[in-house]
Simulated scan of single mutants.
Amino acid sequence: MFPQTGKSIVFDNFPDPTDTWEIIETIGKGTYGKVYKVLNKTDGSKAAVKILDPIHDIDEEIEAEYNILKALSDHSNVVKFYGMYYKKDVKCGDQLWLVLELCNGGSVTDLAKGMLRRGDRMDEAIIAYILHEALMGLQHLHINKTIHRDVKGNNILLTTQGGIKLVDFGVSAQLTNTRLRRNTSVGTPFWMAPEVIACEQQLDSTYDARCDVWSLGITAIELGDGDPPLSDLHPMRALFKIPRLCSDLLLYTDCH
């Protein structure tokens, strides 16, 4: 079961979700639990809910996502946040529900792979539009001293109206006036910036919000090719390759 309190939020203070929301169907599975489509019992509107499994060691990630969504979801390129709910269940374990805007269009990764299966490639104009909208969302985060740290196609969703939304802030980091850089290596290996990877080997290495720009660049390749570079390798091997490729690219640029 979840502990009754986190570091700064009290789970018991959140309302019971079953008073407001009814689960309709499963629409996905994340790192910490499943994602469902839900119906608002009062007004008939639909939303998505990320139901977090009752695991003790994700408290920090829960709080990071909750705090960022609560503070920064008022942007057109960040998924809207409708609230946190707490469901007590002695038998199966207590659950936290994060209720979010429903993005029926799926992820841009799904879109790119679906086109490739049909023998098509995503048009560069569409890729440019997706990147522009994602950049607007990232700019909003960065202005507010927040690094996403896991930018990739699966975390960029489409609405039915063609909108682009950044999602999944469980590993995002908030910067303070006294700490404008980070030194914790997190993210998905193939999209990870070299300076983020370096934090694993070099204790004095740090990075800032520019790591999200690298990840978005890798996402651009993913949208065109269907997969990020080095995706044929084991993730750990890719982590060794990425800094080396970056060094080779810088050397090539200096020589030309």
Rank of each mutant, 00 (worst) to 15 (best):
239 L>H: 04
254 D>P: 01
25 E>S: 15
208 D>L: 04
145 K>L: 12
52 L>C: 07
44 G>Q: 10
103 C>K: 00
101 E>S: 04
129 Y>N: 14
139 Q>E: 10
98 L>F: 12
186 V>T: 03
19 D>H: 10
46 K>W: 12
225 D>G: 10
81 F>W: 04
203 L>H: 11
122 M>D: 04
28 G>C: 07
102 L>K: 04
207 Y>M: 03
53 D>T: 11
192 M>D: 00
157 L>Y: 06
52 L>R: 05
32 Y>K: 09
182 R>T: 13
103 C>Y: 00
26 T>P: 04
78 V>D: 00
130 I>T: 03
70 K>L: 14
156 I>A: 05
114 G>M: 04
132 H>P: 02
67 N>V: 11
189 P>Q: 03
235 P>E: 09
123 D>H: 14
53 D>K: 11
203 L>T: 12
175 L>D: 03
32 Y>M: 07
52 L>Y: 05
83 G>A: 11
152 K>F: 01
90 V>S: 13
23 I>C: 08
159 T>C: 08
24 I>V: 12
85 Y>G: 03
237 R>I: 10
105 G>E: 02
71 A>T: 14
240 F>Y: 15
102 L>D: 01
112 A>Y: 02
206 T>Q: 06
100 L>Q: 02
191 W>V: 00
58 I>V: 15
86 Y>L: 05
17 P>T: 09
186 V>K: 01
118 R>D: 10
124 E>H: 11
5 T>C: 14
31 T>Y: 15
